[in-house]
Amino acid sequence: MSVKAEQFPFPFTEDRYAYSNNSSLQKPARSVTMTDRYLEEIQLKRELLQANHQRCFRSLPLSLESQWEAMRRIFNELAENEPEHFSFEKRGNEYRFQNLLLGEEERFKYRDLSSIERQPLDIAGRHVQEDLIIMGDRHDGLFLEAGQLCFPSNWSLTFVLGMDFKSIHTPVPGITHKDFIGKVERFISRIRQNEAWERKNWSMTISNKLDTPLETYANWGKLRLQVTDENVGELVHLRVEVQRLLRLPLTNDILFTIHTYLLSLNDLIRNDLWLKRLYTTIQFLSDDIAEYKGIALYKNELMQFLEKTLSEKGISL
């Protein structure tokens, strides 16, 4: 499910790859945005939730207050930023959210569980393209306490539920070097109320499949073996997650949203700067990071494809 190149958030600002906290403060603070893939992605999300609800939605009871706050925040944002598509009205403690694109409405009494049929985050997530995560900010760190996750890149929501921030990132190579992950956690813990920060995370995936959870790795992981010199441009996609972190002012917890974009190499190489930056980034990628990002199995085919394209376009490095 690829996006148009004009809407693709190309992640590389330099010619080499290095770990960095490349976050930027968002003004105004946004946790969700829309692309022209809205209807297709919402439909896919709902199919996944219908078929695999236990895999795609998990929560701890102590996350409910933050879920309410997140739902209200997201509906407010949608109505304020896309008023032609959404509306949100409040009368006393009763709310009505209307999604005109889907012809649906959600009515609820704030913090009254008897007024809703699903948990708040599970309702809100069905109206946005983003995956939604609640990170509880406790006195001993950040903990993943709820999530609606339909489009993960090789991780399991069930496994990381209740897990602390540092442990979640254990599989990332070198992440503890010079306490990098500790610094990131401290950065997040200092985000102020109603502030939103945005960063881009990237990897590569085969086919335009958004839903690549750890639970179905046996199905999609083997696609990496099918990459050849002939099909690399069509099969391999750059996958970018625009991740936003917003401090919820009432509960002081963090709403973490992930908007995933895919772009095939054939579409990406139409932009000369993107082609050049992708090539140099992959060229200098260490073996463990290439493995972690899912590239190791077809790195040779990928590099040959990029070199050939650079040569054909007469681009020098």
């Binding site: 496994f159 990381v160 209740g162 897990m163 254990t170």
Partner: peptide, 14 residues
């Protein structure tokens, strides 16, 4: 019955 290769990724919760 899937084949599992254990990693050191540990969940205190589970």
């Amino acid at each position: 019955h899937i084949k599992l290769d254990p990693s050191n990724h540990y969940s205190i919760y589970h």
